[in-house]
Design a binder for these strands. Sequence first.
DNA 1: CGAGATTTTGAATTGGGTCAAGTTATGTGG
DNA 2: CCACATAACTTGACCCAATTCAAAATCTCG
Lengths: 237, 237
Amino acid sequence: MSTTAHKSTCSSCNLAELCLPIGLTAPEMQRLDELGIQKRSFLRSDYLYRSGDKFRSLFAINNGSFKTQVLHEDGREQVTGFQMTGEIIGLDAISTDVHACEAVAMESGMVCELPFNKLETLSRDIPSLQRHLHKIMSREIVRDQGIMLLLGSMRAEERLAAFLLNLSQRYATRGLSPTRFHLRMSRQEIGSYLGLKLETVSRAFSHFQEAGIIIVKVRAIEIINLADLKACINSSC
Amino acid sequence: MSTTAHKSTCSSCNLAELCLPIGLTAPEMQRLDELGIQKRSFLRSDYLYRSGDKFRSLFAINNGSFKTQVLHEDGREQVTGFQMTGEIIGLDAISTDVHACEAVAMESGMVCELPFNKLETLSRDIPSLQRHLHKIMSREIVRDQGIMLLLGSMRAEERLAAFLLNLSQRYATRGLSPTRFHLRMSRQEIGSYLGLKLETVSRAFSHFQEAGIIIVKVRAIEIINLADLKACINSSC
DNA sequence: CGAGATTTTGAATTGGGTCAAGTTATGTGG
DNA sequence: CCACATAACTTGACCCAATTCAAAATCTCG
């Protein structure tokens, strides 16, 4: 927890999702700064929030990564997403003022806490911020629809291919290699996200490797042939 | 398309989701009315919008019902939801200004068209409307997470039980019978929504009937034992 | 009424799950 | 820095829930 948190400006906070793409003017930036954004550091396996927690803030991930998961009464849990630098989490809680899922850190890092009341107030004065907030929420809805398509109509290897391609594309967006990266999540977590058992995930990785599409060294992934990986998605390889 | 559309007030438009729960004052109602809401009628199998259409408006369903579905390049399609009276559709399009899915009428009815630009402008002046809009979007995110849980971790009969209970609850909210209702969608559409084949859906219906939990006459459903149906969801009956 | 669409049911098949064993990482304390 | 313990991952063999294919029954509507 930084004691100089109130001094953080939008740029120092790296609110990529929130600030960069909306073209705020300097005075607007100033006002956003007045939100009194708090930075918070977190360690691997820390909970940012839990299901049932009172909602106060959204969180912009400065660096590090999270998984979000929903819990069912009977103990079942389903990973609903993996979030990385620049992404916003907590949107699910706006609906009821209570968090509907939980966010667990997969590696340590920093978040900016964005008090939602203040964000709403400010977005009444700054139309571009208002619009941007709407877009972020809508983007989450579209993302979720993509996962439904995946879970509802793809076979195991198609799901894994789609997952790897999604990661690849998100790393590329962040200026990292789209073909060589390190998985932050376990086979079990990937399986939960994709609606598969961890053994199935492992077998699919092995199969892609045998097919010469990727090289897998446990969590280190190298995509040898992006086109082939894309082709997997409708032809089942 | 009604020529008296501009005369429609909020209450006559039955914008349950949008108006009723937010406690607008009379002058605020007036302003909302100034949106110039257009009513539009539609027939069974009409498209309200298609994937790729330019985004202009959200739609509040006055009466009738829709399915929304996403399309994959290879022709696969996945039903992402069934919407009924009082629900808002089109939220997915805010993110890119283009509709990401398509909405097809399952029975004829009426919608109110809510021009999104005007909605945004107005919600800058009416905080309760702003808050409500945010809640509607967030609720959609939570709903989607529930479907991910269903698709990712439930067996066929659990999925169908969850689906029937969801319908039951939504009919109850609308003052209709929670135990006797008519399905607006085919086995094929239910299957797409639940990530199952139509034969599997049909078999699950038959099994529930044999178990004395429901009575099925094709699309006419009677739930005999709500508690048993709920129990299906974690014990696989 | 009749034609096409939808639904049900049966039988055979299979993709992914389950269970189990062995292997490779990872992290901890000495 | 190594040795050990524990967690994570891989692989094999078997099994079962759901799919596929097929045919019959029922429904819907012009």
